[in-house]
Design a protein around this nucleic acid. Structure first.
Lengths: 202, 202
DNA sequence: TGTAAGTGGTGACCATAGTCACTGCACAAA
DNA sequence: TTTGTGCAGTGACTATGGTCACCACTTACA
């Protein structure tokens, strides 16, 4: 049985399993475009989905959807039949369980248990957005970059990371040159602090 | 009957009315402190609640809870018995309906209809946080200040606004001097544009 | 093998806004 | 009247980071 659903009513789990389909999604697939209407709620089984926002040609990473989490904001969007305000893209090859939005509305009434799970997911995203705000407003680039790299290594399990300065700049909403500069600064600083040697690029 | 609840099951409305109490809260009352555990979910009947976050001695306005809205994040916090990550303060004299958190958990299972309302509230807050992120990261101070003033006039219905530069600076997460400067710049600019004359301070 | 595209490094410059220090002003309490 | 307190205005300085121009290096592929 699916671990993500392990604490739910078995009747509901059966419903979910018969009405949803598991899908393999290749790395770097855009699965949600801003302004798009949402018809499925994905639950990540494994892999990693990146959620971000855009403004002109600047982007900003909002958070990742990790295994056993769902992209709950899809659901809100689907509820009001509103277009999405964010983008989502697979950061790794990802397997996801796709719940049809209309079914989910039904299940919610039929199996109120599922709500606890949904509320938790909402809460999680709210907290992550709040963290993002703190980073953007209160932290300098050096701290933002350092935290970003640490998080990335932790999430992907990859070290060295395979990512270009340009990509990093996008995700942090800044320019490539800035990343170059700050990266260099971090490297020299961190040699002293004995931290940085555990994170490498390329 | 309460307008906020008008589209709910009448049995539920009765439950709510007998188990919740309406409370008058005076302007400038701190109703939620960061790190506090949450036991009631307020629904604003009239007045205005300001929700903000803090980092050191810097603050940032996140959003307002307007009449017929609820502070849904309280609920998430109460669910996991987690401390709150934000602050809330009444911006005006406010009347709120206080739903006991433990009762709400029960109602959710008993009256699944209430979920639609909750999900909508979540969605609203998520969207507002996203807007806040956009303002902070993508907009310059002049635009941020202008939008802030417009919004404030709209919400409070007061013009001229009674608010000090210091307060504005707090809510925008910047310094008083910056507000002074930008305010002056806006005033001269806006005389030309024929916009600003509709918003005044003091 | 030569060319194009992508990547990173770097110096110079600029704009925004955060900080500091000080002024003047209004109002209220002593 | 004097004094204290809070608010606003302002010039000077600084720091951060965004922008521009350009170079060097690698890789792919035509």
């Amino acid at each position: 049985m699916l671990q993500a659903l392990s604490h739910l009513n078995s009747e509901l789990v059966e419903e979910i399993e018969t009405n949803s389909k598991t899908q393999e999604i290749e790395k770097d697939t855009e699965i949600l475009r801003e302004g798009q209407y949402v018809k499925v709620i994905p639950i990540v089984l494994n892999g990693l989905i990146k959620v971000f926002t855009r403004h002109g040609d600047k982007e900003l990473l909002l958070y990742y959807i990790k295994p056993n989490e769902s992209c709950i904001m899809s659901f809100s969007a689907s509820l009001k039949n509103e277009p999405s305000k964010v983008f989502a893209i697979t950061e790794e090859n990802t397997t996801a369980l796709l719940l049809p939005a209309d079914q989910v509305s039904k299940w919610i009434k039929q199996f109120p248990d599922i709500n606890t799970l949904f509320f938790q997911q909402y809460n999680l995203r709210y907290g992550e957005l709040l963290d993002t705000i703190h980073h953007v407003l209160f932290d300098k680039m050096d701290k933002r970059l350092y935290d970003y790299l640490k998080e990335k290594v932790k999430l992907t399990g990859k070290n060295p990371l395979k990512i270009s300065h340009r990509q990093i700049a996008n995700e942090l909403g800044t320019a490539r040159e800035v990343i170059s500069r700050v990266m260099k600064k971090l490297e020299t600083e961190e040699k002293l602090k004995q931290h940085m040697h555990s994170i490498e690029l390329l």
